[in-house]
């Protein structure tokens, strides 16, 4: 197994906590009716987004999914601006016009979350084509869910990316359900990574709750793509602890199943590792957790205090 530096582990633990607190804060704001739009939470799936974000190099790009808060935090987006966007405020990443589904920071390489399942695959091909054309040496990390790999755009993008040897790592967060439909009912294969073979793309399946394996495989995959050898397909098996959206009654899965996965909570696994290997003292861990929590509290305050968008902006920015 790979050894991670203390600095990386610190950032990982901080950001994973941030992601968890972010989702819990959003749940709270939803319950209180302060957010009344649809939001998709990634509680339980934080490791894939956060850890792979940390494996990126400066200047790499990312395309996110509708369940993208942890992905955004991993990439390094500002939680204040994220929270403000979720509350539809003028200070948000998209000035309140995008919401959770369209958080983006394009100039810094985040080409956006996406409300269309599978919408990011071909966009990533384009972003990667730009890197190839301009010889930047940067890679595009394209997140998607298991359900998205049943969209035609997945197959067109995989084929094109392979033929053109585009620098992309496709990271499929397989949380075992396409909304409510279990994976066994929507694809006839065990591992989504097998789909790489049809396009001569290396496919790997990993444990999406294990930060070490994610960091290891993502670092190698990004290196492979960066070297000009073409795309990689990584499938991370993971699980969302919450419903698909804020109004999901979750009738399609048992509480036993949810509990089983909660025992593999990626945040808990990371904490356990840090304790057992004495990377940080209990006090240090508490401090990191506290800082992460207060950053989210501040983000919520920032968002709540921010101004609503001026109604006159509604017609702005239809055209560049």
């Amino acid at each position: 197994m790979i050894e991670l530096s203390e600095e990386i582990l610190l950032r990982m633990y901080y950001k994973m906590n941030q992601a968890r607190f972010f989702e819990e804060k959003v749940e709270d704001l939803l319950k209180r009716g302060i957010i009344d739009e649809t939001v998709y939470l990634s509680k339980g799936e934080e490791a894939t987004g956060v850890v792979s974000g940390l494996a990126l190099e400066k200047g790499d790009l990312v395309s996110m999914t509708h369940r993208g808060h942890a992905q955004a935090i991993g990439f390094g987006l500002d939680v204040n601006l994220m929270m403000a966007e979720l509350l539809g405020k003028s200070t948000g990443y998209c000035k309140g016009k995008g919401g959770s589904l369209h958080i983006a920071d394009v100039l810094n390489g985040n080409i956006g979350a996406n409300g269309i399942v599978g919408g990011g695959f071909t966009l990533s091909c384009g972003a990667a084509l730009t890197q190839k054309h301009k010889k930047t040496g940067q890679v595009v990390l394209c997140f998607a869910g298991d359900g998205a790999t049943n969209e035609g755009s997945f197959h067109e993008a995989m084929n094109l990316a392979s033929v053109w040897k585009l620098p992309i790592v496709f990271l499929i967060e397989n949380n075992l359900y396409g909304m409510s439909t279990p994976i066994a009912k929507h694809m006839n294969i065990e591992n989504i990574s097998d789909r790489g073979a049809g396009y001569n793309i290396p496919g790997l399946t990993i444990d999406g709750t294990d930060f070490l394996e994610i960091y290891d495989v993502m670092t190698k995959s990004l290196r492979y793509a960066r070297a000009g050898r073409g795309p990689v397909l990584v499938e991370a098996k993971t699980y969302r602890f919450c419903g698909h959206s804020s109004d999901d009654p979750q009738v399609y899965r048992s509480t036993e199943e949810v509990q089983q996965w909660q025992e593999k909570d990626p945040l808990f696994r990371l904490k356990k590792y840090l304790q057992e290997n004495r990377v940080f003292t209990g006090k240090q861990l508490e401090t990191i957790e506290g800082e992460a929590k207060s950053s989210i509290e501040q983000a919520a305050e920032f968002a709540l205090e921010s101004l609503e968008p001026d109604i006159t902006t509604v017609l702005e920015d239809v055209y560049a």
Partner: peptide, 10 residues
């Protein structure tokens, strides 16, 4: 899609 992604990135 590739054209959109390429346009978005320069």
């Amino acid at each position: 899609g590739t054209a959109v992604g390429a346009a978005l990135t320069g």
